[in-house]
């Protein structure tokens, strides 16, 4: 009988590709004549996108720490205050990330006003679409690991309308109809990835808080039991003495 092990290489590679997309700039080979304005706009876009990626990473670290604090169930050294502070901080950061994504869409709309993109950009867009589909498979695989009977907690913040899957498929149709709109589709998918990561992090924090609440509730039930026993003992005592 062989001992069990777990291969996480595929998870690692998918994360590697995701992080590469977030961090590395896209360099089209044939630059048009308006290279100066376009390169300035692209560098601003990449800078904002990488800043959003960094923010998402820091938020996920804080959520991991929140999970660790929520697991502590010691009566002394109560981390409730720290948990509340972390929760508020995480909410504020997620709100800031949402507004940053909105700004990113503004930059994308400015880019969409320009025209004339090359064939290489369309190839990059196709690769981005494939990466997006793979990413959705990751999340579906992660969801299957959890208990199917347990209801999925809803995210506390409503996702923006541009991250809907129908919007993505509409963009796909638009790409087939109008090849010159390749770059906006790629930018749109990048925003979708960031929003998916934010939603996953928010769901993780929400489930951690629910777990903590369940533990507190169970402790309360234990307190109620002890209280009932004490009342019974007191009644018996009064009965026998009187």
């Amino acid at each position: 009988m062989a001992s069990s092990y777990r291969d996480r290489t595929s998870e690692f590679r998918l994360l590697l590709e995701t992080l590469k997309k977030i961090g590395s700039p896209v360099q089209p080979e044939n630059a048009p004549s308006t290279s100066h304005g376009e390169s300035y706009s692209r560098s601003e876009f990449n800078r904002k996108a990488s800043r959003i990626g960094l923010g998402i990473h820091e938020t996920s670290q804080k959520i991991a720490r929140l999970t660790q604090l929520a697991r502590k169930s010691s009566m002394f050294n109560d981390p409730a205050v720290e948990i509340q502070e972390l929760t508020v901080l995480i909410k504020n950061e997620i709100t800031a990330l949402n507004s940053a994504l909105f700004d990113l869409q503004t930059v994308q709309n400015t880019d969409m006003a320009d025209g004339g993109y090359s064939q290489d950009t369309i190839v990059h867009s196709t690769a981005n679409i494939k990466a997006h589909e793979n990413r959705k498979q990751i999340f579906s695989k992660n969801a299957s690991r959890e208990n199917p009977l347990q209801h999925q907690p809803k995210p506390t913040t409503e996702p923006p309308p541009w991250s809907n899957s129908s919007n993505a498929s509409e963009s796909l149709h638009q790409e087939l109809a109008l090849p010159s709109n390749g770059a906006p589709v790629g930018n749109q998918l990048r925003i979708d990835d960031n929003m998916d990561e934010s939603s996953a992090n928010v769901e993780g924090a929400h489930s951690s808080l629910l777990r903590h609440l369940n533990r507190i509730s169970s402790n309360r039930w234990l307190l109620i039991k002890i209280f009932v026993i004490l009342i019974l003992f007191l009644m018996i005592f009064i009965f026998f003495v009187a």
């Binding site: 092990y5 777990r6 290489t9």
Partner: peptide
């Protein structure tokens, strides 16, 4: 990195 494994 070629592989990431958990060997317990």
């Amino acid at each position: 990195v070629q592989q990431v494994q958990e060997f317990y």
